[in-house]
Design a binder for these strands. Sequence first.
RNA 1: UGGGGUGUCGUCCAGCGGCAGGACACAUGACUCUGGAUCAUGGAACCGGGGUUCGAAUCCCUGCACCCCAGCCA
Length: 578
Amino acid sequence: MSDDKKEENIKANNTGEKGTTIPPHFIRYIIQQDMKTNKWAGRVETRFPPEPNGYLHIGHAKAICLSFGMAEEFGGVCHLRFDDTNPTKEETEYVESIKKDVKWLGFNWGKHEYYASDYFDQLYAFSLQLIKMGKAYVCDLTPEQIREYRGTLTEPGRESPYRNRSMQENLTLFNRMKRGHFKDGEKVLRAKIDMASPNINMRDPVIYRILHAKHHRTGDKWCIYPMYDFTHCLSDSIEQITHSLCTLEFEDHRPLYDWFLDALGVYHPQQIEFARLNLTYTVMSKRKLLQLVKEGHVRGWDDPRMPTISGFRRRGYTPTSIRTFADRIGVAKRDSMVDYGLLEHCIREELNKTAPRVMGVLRPLKVIIDNYPDDLVEEMEAVNNPEDESMGARKVPFSKVIYIEETDFMENPPKKFFRLSPGQEVRLRYAYYITCTDVIKDASGKVIELHCTYDPESKGGGTPDGRRVKGTIHWVSAVHAIRAEVRLYEHLLTVPDPSDEEEDKHFLEYLNPESLEVIENALLEPSLANVKEGQRFQFERHGYFYVDPDSTEGKPVFNRTVTLRDTWGKMVQQNKHD
RNA sequence: UGGGGUGUCGUCCAGCGGCAGGACACAUGACUCUGGAUCAUGGAACCGGGGUUCGAAUCCCUGCACCCCAGCCA
C-alpha cells in the first residue's frame, strides 16, 4: 500500500467524534481525496432527492444519513430536493411527511429546499437548446411502437421515422405540445443519441411527455412534463451539486447524464452509486408499501409494523438508534440483506441506558397472599434505571392481592424453570419472597388463581439469612393497578426474504398473521397513570414500550418497540423444535 | 444472448502485495433482586481453476454465480 493510501485509511478510521470509530467506506474515501486535491474548491454539496409519491422508509434513512452525513462531516450542505416531475403520482401530503421524517432524523437542509418543478422553465429552455443543436426531436410513435423500435437487450433498436424532422418542424411541434394542441401520449420529445447502443438508456430516450394533469405545485401551467433522467442530472447541475449519491440501479443511467450535461455544456457533478438497503422480514419497495396501506393490511403508512420512518417513529424507535444503525450497516456496492436483529440491537442499546423501568403485567394471573394483612398497603421502593443512578427511584404500592404474569407460573415446571410453582420460592421484584401453597382452577382445568404465603423478613427483596432465590418476577397490586391497551408487534413477514421463496408466490402470502396482538387490559403499576404520548419505558422482563398517539385520558396505549433479549424464551423455543 | 455492476464468517462491513479484523447473530462461563444489562471466552469466511511473486483476499488470465437495464415511472 502506498503511504498516501495508508494515511488516508488511518484518517478514515478516526474521523468519528469523541474517539468513536466510524468505519471507512468508499464514498467517504472519494470525498476525502477530492478535498485533498481541491477538486471542488473545498465544497461538499450533496442532495437527497425523494419523489413525493409515498412515505420514506428505512432504506431512505440510509440514503439520508449518507448524503446529509457526508455534507455534515466535511462542512458542506445537503439539499432536500423533491423530484416532482410526475403530477399523476405526487401529492402534497407526501411532501409534508418527507420533511417531517428528515427533520425527525435530525437533519437540516436549511434554506436548501428545492423542487424539480421549480426548474421547469429552465428545463424547457434546455430542451429547446437540444432541439436547436439537432440533438432532440419530436416523435409521433405510440408507446407500443416506441417499445418495438427500442429493440431488446440483445438486438439493436431501429430509428424512428420521425428522427430526422427539421429543426424548425421540431420547434413548432414541441411548442404546440406545450400549448396543449395534443392529447396525452400523442407525441413525445426524444433525445437523438444512438438506437444501436448496447445501453438501452441511450436509445433515444424520451425527455418530455404530454400529461394533461394538475401538478401539486405548478397547477395547470404545464401539460408537458420532463422525464426523470433529463430532470435529475440537470437539477443536480443547476444546484451545483458536487457529489450526487444514488443507488446502484442508476449506474447505467450515468452515461446518459453525461451526455445531457456535455451536450448542454453545463456544470457536471460527480455521481457515485451505492447499494440500497434490504432488511429481513419486511419489504422495502414503495409499490409494495403502498399496496399494504391501500389494501388495509396495515393501518396506515405509520403503522408500527411498517418499515417506514414514520412507522419506526410510532413503534418507538429513536432517531439516534436509526442513525447508529445506518452507521453500522456501512456503505458498499454489493447487494445485501441486513439482519433485522441489528436494528433491534441498536434500539435496545440506547433504550437500556435511557428508558425508565416499570412493572406491567400483560396476561394477569391473580395471586392472594394468605398471610399478608388484609388492609395493609406498603410502598416499595423501586429503582428507575439500574444503568443510570441519576434517574432515582419511585414507590410502588404492594398489597394482599396482586397479579403476576400468567407465564411466570407452572404447576409442573420443567427443570430449569426458576419462576413460581408449587413449593418453589420466588422473589417479587422489590417486594417479598413468596411460596405457592394452593392452585385454583376453573372447570376446564385452567389455573385462575394462586394462593401463596410470604416471608415478612424478605421485605425489599432479601432476607437476613441470605438464602438464595433464583427467580425474580414482576407484579402489580390488584387494587392499585391501572389498565392499559398494549400492542405487541412481530415481524411483518414470516420469512426473512420472500424473493428467496417459491417464485410464483406473492409477498402478501408471507404476511405474518401474528404481526399484531392487542392486549386490551394489561395491568400496570400506578406510576403510569399520567403518561404522555411519546414517552418510552421498559416494562421489566418484557421489553421497551412507547406511548402511542391513540392514548386517551383514562386509557393509555403502549406499543412494544422491541422485546428484551430472552434467553429463557429461546431455550423453550429450541426445545419445542428438538 | 448485449450492456452495466457485485462476489470475504450465518448476516453486514473492513482489508488496497506481508499474521484475514470489527459489529450483529450464535455458543460457553462469570456476575446479577429484570432468564435484562455487563464482563470474559469460543466457533465461524476470502466463488472456482490457472498464473505472476519469497509471499496473493489483494495483481494477471479464465471460468462460475448473483443483481440491475427493454416505463411516455422515479
